[in-house]
């Protein structure tokens, strides 16, 4: 393993570690649930991303082969992180907020967690 490869891999590991740490720190520091939701969805993405890049570089430069697993982990992470955040946000809103706590939708019906969809748009696929 050449020195340059070592430096590159360690650089991305350290970057990943720092962002992972900051993301976890955000969970402690921020006050409301909605604020805390920001820190795992972002800071941790780059934290995991840094470790994945380091892993890809390691297998490429040392093992001499291209590894696709890291790309897949990235793909799955990007698919699941927003959905999880969305679920947590909705659960929080249903349990703790009233419709008056939120701004108006600006168009006819209210937010989907309180109001049903208007009749005309229910099933246009059948």
């Amino acid at each position: 393993m050449t020195v340059i490869a070592e430096i590159l891999v360690s650089f991305f590991l350290v970057v990943g570690g720092i962002f992972g740490l900051v993301g976890s720190l955000g969970l402690l520091k921020l006050r409301t649930t909605m604020q805390r939701l920001h820190s795992p969805t972002k800071a941790t993405t780059l934290g995991v991303g840094g470790v994945l890049i380091a892993s890809m570089l390691y297998f490429l430069l040392v093992g001499g082969m291209l590894s696709f697993h890291e790309l897949l982990i990235t793909l799955f992470l990007f698919l699941t992180a927003p959905i999880t955040a969305h679920f947590i946000a909705k659960t929080y809103m249903v349990m703790n907020l009233k419709p008056t706590d939120l701004p108006e939708t600006g168009r006819g019906p209210g937010w989907a967690i309180y109001d049903d969809a208007p009749e005309s748009e229910t099933d246009d696929r059948t």
Partner: peptide, 11 residues
């Protein structure tokens, strides 16, 4: 963070 849609998905 996107939280929810309006009931008719217009905002």
């Amino acid at each position: 963070v996107s939280a929810t849609l309006s009931a008719d998905a217009s905002s």
